[in-house]
Computed example of a mutant assay.
Amino acid sequence: MKIKILVAMITLGSLCSFSNYVSIPAQYSAIEQTKPSEGEALIKKEDCATCHKIDKKVVGPSYLDIAKKYPMNDKNIKYISEKITKGGSGVWGPIPMSAHTALKKDDAKKIAIYILSLNK
């Protein structure tokens, strides 16, 4: 019996490894699903998921809400990337966003571009 369960688990694990799972649902992504953007990869490495989700407000606003409020342009990319590195409060409520001073400006810009690209 234990062997059958073990074989079933291995088979199930093998089948799951061939699935086409993507971390962002297609209706929320403006980028190609087969390869994540640099901004998305940076978000996964940082602590962003503690306070932000793609489509739900957690502590801070959802990425979709940010993208809806700020259209994609150079001014907003600069504004969002500065918010990421310097932090701030008052725009989305009283809870402040912590500063991410160790993040390179170029990386913050990639994150900002990714977030703003979610608005279709």
Rank of each mutant, 00 (worst) to 15 (best):
K4C: 10
V7F: 06
A8F: 13
M9I: 13
M9W: 04
M9K: 05
I10P: 04
T11D: 05
S14L: 15
L15Y: 08
L15V: 12
C16M: 13
C16W: 09
F18L: 14
F18R: 06
S19E: 01
N20V: 11
N20Q: 12
N20C: 11
V22T: 09
S23A: 12
S23G: 11
I24W: 02
I24G: 02
I24V: 15
I24Q: 06
I24T: 13
Q27P: 03
Q27W: 00
Y28L: 14
Y28T: 05
S29L: 04
A30H: 09
T34M: 10
P36R: 08
P36V: 06
S37F: 04
E38C: 00
E38H: 01
G39K: 12
E40N: 10
A41I: 12
L42I: 15
K44C: 07
K44E: 13
D47P: 03
D47Y: 11
T50Y: 12
H52I: 04
I54D: 09
K56E: 15
V59Q: 01
V59D: 01
V59T: 02
V59C: 02
V59F: 02
G60W: 08
G60Q: 09
Y63W: 14
L64H: 07
L64F: 03
D65G: 05
D65L: 04
I66N: 01
I66P: 04
I66S: 02
K68T: 07
K68N: 10
Y70G: 03
P71N: 12
M72H: 02
N76Q: 03
N76L: 03
N76M: 03
K78E: 14
K78G: 03
K78W: 00
S81T: 06
S81D: 08
S81V: 07
E82D: 15
K83H: 11
I84F: 03
T85M: 08
G87V: 09
G88T: 02
S89C: 09
G90F: 13
V91M: 14
G93V: 07
G93A: 06
G93I: 08
I95N: 11
P96Q: 08
M97L: 13
S98K: 15
S98V: 15
A99V: 02
H100W: 05
T101A: 13
T101H: 06
A102L: 14
L103A: 05
L103V: 10
K104T: 11
K105G: 12
D107N: 11
D107W: 00
A108C: 08
A108N: 05
I111P: 09
I111Q: 08
I111T: 09
A112H: 04
A112N: 00
I113K: 15
I113H: 07
S117K: 08
S117F: 02
L118P: 00
L118C: 03
N119H: 14
K120S: 07
K120R: 11
